[in-house]
């Protein structure tokens, strides 16, 4: 069984752990480089990307995650996690992992009162999953993707779920809704059988 971790510095990490458990697997809350070195898959949750990035930098976790990804660890970021995985964050020099060849714009849909839910249809979604309600909270927008990045789902014309190799990023929060297909897909990327 693959060992899955959820980065538990700040954000809704407990919701991700709940989804992984609902899928019949288990996930550890991780906070140190040593804990990350043991993982087959890591989730970076929603939260504040500046706070999480800063804490990762202070506790030497940026390099720990980069080298774990290099040895094959799968990585999944939602919202703030997706921002931290992007190579380019418009108008910001905040600490980041910079692993997926894409540009993101933070808070692209506006302030909290503009947060929304939307059905993202099934046409480009993961094989076997039905239409899915996506919760966007002060969400980022992916404004550019590199040629190695595959779009798994869009909202209107924007990519909202993308994959590059064993790296997966969502601008919304699959951990807040009932459909678990995206987490199930991530378990597969982590080598879970």
């Amino acid at each position: 069984m693959a060992i899955i971790g959820v980065l538990a510095l700040q954000g809704d990490f407990s919701r991700h752990i709940g989804v992984i458990e609902a899928l019949g697997s288990s996930a550890r809350a991780v906070r140190t480089p040593k804990e990350i070195a043991e993982l087959d898959g890591l989730i970076i949750p929603g939260g504040e990307s500046t706070t999480i990035g800063m804490l990762m930098q202070r506790f030497a976790l940026l390099d720990a995650v980069r080298s774990a990804v290099q040895r094959g660890m799968a990585l999944f970021g939602t919202c703030a996690g997706a921002i931290l995985m992007a190579t380019e964050i418009s108008g910001s020099d905040q600490p980041r992992l910079g692993l997926i060849d894409m540009s993101v714009e933070r808070n692209a849909y506006g302030r909290q009162i503009e947060s929304f839910e939307a059905d993202i249809g099934d046409e480009q979604l993961l094989p076997g999953s039905e239409s899915l309600t996506a919760v966007f909270i002060r969400a980022p927008r992916i404004t550019r993707i590199g040629t190695t990045v595959r779009v798994l789902a869009r909202f209107e014309s924007d990519p909202v779920l993308v994959q590059q190799g064993h790296l997966l990023a969502a601008t919304f929060h699959p951990e807040l809704t009932e459909n678990r297909s995206i987490h199930a897909h991530f378990l597969k990327l982590s080598g879970h059988v």
Binding site: G11, G47, E48, L176
Partner: peptide
């Protein structure tokens, strides 16, 4: 959801 995002901080 926003309250969830503010956890742990």
């Amino acid at each position: 959801g926003l309250a969830e995002m503010l956890k742990g901080g």
